[in-house]
Amino acid sequence: MSHGLAIFVATALVACNGEGATETADVNLLETAQTRAVSIDDPIEPIPLRVEVDARKRALGERLFRDPILSPDGAVACTTCHDLANGGDDGRTKSDIVGRTPALVNTPSIFNAAFNFRLHWGGGYDELAAQLKVPIESPRVMATSFDEVLSRLRTRPDYRDAFAGIYPEGITQRSFTDAIVEFERSLVTPNAAFDRWLRGEADALTEREKEGYSIFKSHGCISCHQGVNVGGNMFQKLGVMREFFEERGTVTEADLGRYNVTKRDEDRHVFRVPSLRNVAVTGPYFHDGSAETLEEAVQIMSVYQLGRPLDDDQVDAIVAFLRTLTGRYEGGTRP
C-alpha cells in the first residue's frame, strides 16, 4: 500500500471515529497525509540534457527537414508546419497550406516528440519512422510519395553525395527515413526553468510559479500531465467530467480521436494526452485548436477533465508554472 495513501486513509478513518473535538486535529493530520502523498510523488521528470545522435545523420536529416524539395511543388518543407524557431509547430488553429486540403487537427510540436509514447492525436503511430509517411503522403501536407521524393533527391548530386557518405545503399526510403528520424530525435528542449528547479536549482522558479505547480498537482492536472513530457504517455477522453463535444457542438470525424484508429466505441473522443513541454509557445491548444490562450485551455481542462472550475488566480498561477516548461533547443534558437 502506498505510504501516502495509506497514511492519508488511516488518518481519515481516525478522523471519522472521533467526533467533534478531535475533528480539527484529525483534519490537520489528513492534510499532512495529503501533503505527504503529493510530496513522495515525482510526477514530472526533467528532459535529459543530452540525446545521443549520429551527428552526420542528424545534419543530413535537418537539411531534409528544412528542404521543400520533399514536396512536388517545392513549396512545403517539414518546417512549414514544424517551425523550429517557433515552438516546433505552426502557431495556427489548423494548418492551411496554400494549394493543399486544409488540415483537420492542430499541428502538434515536433519538439520532444521522441518522448511521446504514441504520435498524432489519435495515437495511431508508435514511432517517428512509422508516422513519416503521413506528412509525406497526406494531401494536406506534402501530397507526394516516397518514390517521388526519393527520385527528386536522386537528381541532386549534393544529396547523392551526402547519402552515399553515410549510407552504403545511397538514397532509399530506409536511409531517408533514418536521417530524418535521427534529426527529430535530436529535437529536444532541455534546461527549462522547471527542469532546472527539479534538478535542484532552488531559485529557478519564482514563488508564484511554485504555487502554480502546487495547484497543478493538487487540483489534479498532474493525473494525466506527468512524466518527462508532462503528458504524452497515456490516452484520455476529452470530457471526463462534462461532455466537451456536446457543449462545443458540430462533432467531426477528427473529434473521434483514437476511435479512428481502433474503431472501439470506448475510444470515441479519446486522445493522446498532449505534452505540456513548451506549451506557452505552442498555442492554439487542443486537437481542434479551439483554445487560443493558455488561460482558456487551463480553465477548459479544469472544468471538463477535472470536474471543478479554477478561479482566475489559480489559473494565473498554473499558467505561470506552465511558462516554466519552455526549454531550450540546443541545436537551434530558443523555441
Binding site: L30, V38, S218, G220, S223, C224, F235, Q236, E266
Partner: peptide, 26 residues
C-alpha cells in the same frame, strides 16, 4: 491503456474528493 486513463481520473478524484468534501463540510 484503459487502466492508465481510468486510474488517472480515479486518482484525480481520490486526491481532490477529500479536499472538496472537507471544505464543504467545514
Amino acid at each position: 491503456e484503459s487502466f492508465k486513463s481510468e486510474n488517472a481520473i480515479l486518482r484525480n478524484s481520490v486526491r481532490y474528493f477529500p479536499i472538496a468534501a472537507k471544505r464543504l463540510r467545514d
